[in-house]
């Protein structure tokens, strides 16, 4: 009797374990399916959020990215997108919280640190922003990915310049120049940043580099049609180009509103050019061309120092001056 009961109890327990195991595998299959649906839904919400961002609806995008994040927490793209949307809609605190939560699990992630830097920058927290920029810059991903590294560094430089920290910006720029991508756009961007940082010589070097790297770039295309000393062009054309270039510089100097010593320099350069154009007959003799070109370069350089970057034609005139041996004043 006792043994029968024992056998019965064991059989019952075995049956229960069997049921538990069956339900376990069934539940696991169901969980896998549910996870698949969640991942698919998250991707759909993410796409909707991107579409909302494209049409400029940051609030709708925020809601969509939130839904994506809630359905798939493991994909950090969604949280990053949410943070960007929150930042765009002005909710900086929430954006930072979302990013910090993400950073808990990936403190060395370049993207997260970069986004945090942008958020801190938008908040006006310079030390935090610089710290996050540097974290992004020295993250393993940035070490391996040159494009990412260059992008982060240029953003850091722009941020430092925007906050008046020229010294640190210049040192970062030197590093950026050493690590620069071999393309004209990067060289022009670097040149612009160098000029913003007050290092005009290096700025012009970057413009020259841009022309050499990409003969089809905008600046490069402007040079052969604006250079009065270009080879195999008729004298009439040389005179026309010199006159046109002088007008460009005059226009640039006239529009360069500044104060103090810079204003004096701008005024002086403008007067020199005005005197040159009124007193000198614009002929194609080498002296006139060389003198005119020197004045154009000096005028552009003065405007660059006083009023920052100009238009592509201004950059092209600077490069023309440098190509024909003009020295930084």
């Amino acid at each position: 009797m006792d043994r029968t009961r024992l056998r019965h109890e064991i059989a019952q327990l075995a049956a229960l374990i069997g049921i538990a195991l069956s339900v376990f595998f069934l539940t696991r299959m169901f969980a896998t399916y549910t996870r698949t649906v969640r991942v698919r839904d998250a991707a759909e919400w993410y796409n909707r959020g991107q579409a909302a961002l494209t049409r400029g609806d940051a609030l709708a995008a925020t809601e969509d990215f939130r839904r994506a994040t809630a359905r798939n927490r493991s994909d950090r793209r969604y949280t990053l997108a949410l943070a960007r949307a929150l930042e765009t809609s002005g909710n900086l605190d929430a954006a930072e919280r979302a990013l910090l939560a993400l950073r808990e699990f990936a403190p060395e992630d370049a993207d997260i640190n970069f986004e945090l830097a942008q958020t801190a920058g938008a908040r006006g927290d310079v030390p935090d922003a610089v710290r996050y920029y540097r974290n992004a810059l020295y993250a393993p991903a940035a070490a391996a990915d040159a494009d990412l590294r260059r992008h982060v560094r240029l953003q850091l430089v722009a941020f430092l310049l925007a906050h008046g920290d020229r010294t640190r910006a210049q040192s970062e720029l030197l590093a950026a120049a050493a690590d620069a991508a071999p393309d004209a756009d990067s060289a022009v961007a670097l040149g612009d940043l160098f000029s913003e940082a007050g290092d005009f010589g290096r700025a012009e070097e970057q413009y020259v580099r841009a022309v050499r790297l990409a003969p089809q770039s905008e600046i490069a295309r402007l040079i052969p049609v604006n250079d009065p000393l270009a080879r195999r062009i008729p004298n009439v054309e040389r005179e026309r180009r010199l006159g046109a270039d002088l007008q460009v510089v005059q226009h640039r100097l006239a529009g360069c509103a500044t104060t103090g010593r810079a204003a004096d320099a701008v005024r002086s350069a403008a007067e020199q050019i005005a005197r040159f154009t009124s007193e000198t007959a614009l002929r194609s003799d080498p002296d006139t061309l060389n003198d005119g070109l020197a004045l154009i370069y000096e005028g552009e350089h003065t405007a660059l120092e006083a009023c920052g970057n100009g238009t592509p034609i201004d950059r092209a005139l600077l490069v023309i001056g440098r190509l024909h041996g003009a020295a930084v004043p």
């Binding site: 229960l16 049921i19 538990a20 339900v23 539940t27 969980a31 549910t34 649906v37």
Partner: peptide, 23 residues
């Protein structure tokens, strides 16, 4: 022994319940 089995089955029922509601 039943305590363990009941714990497992109750846990499974709760998980299944959660998933079923979501779906």
């Amino acid at each position: 022994a039943l305590t363990i089995v009941v714990g497992v089955i109750a846990g499974l029922s709760a998980v299944l319940f959660t998933l079923a509601i979501e779906q």
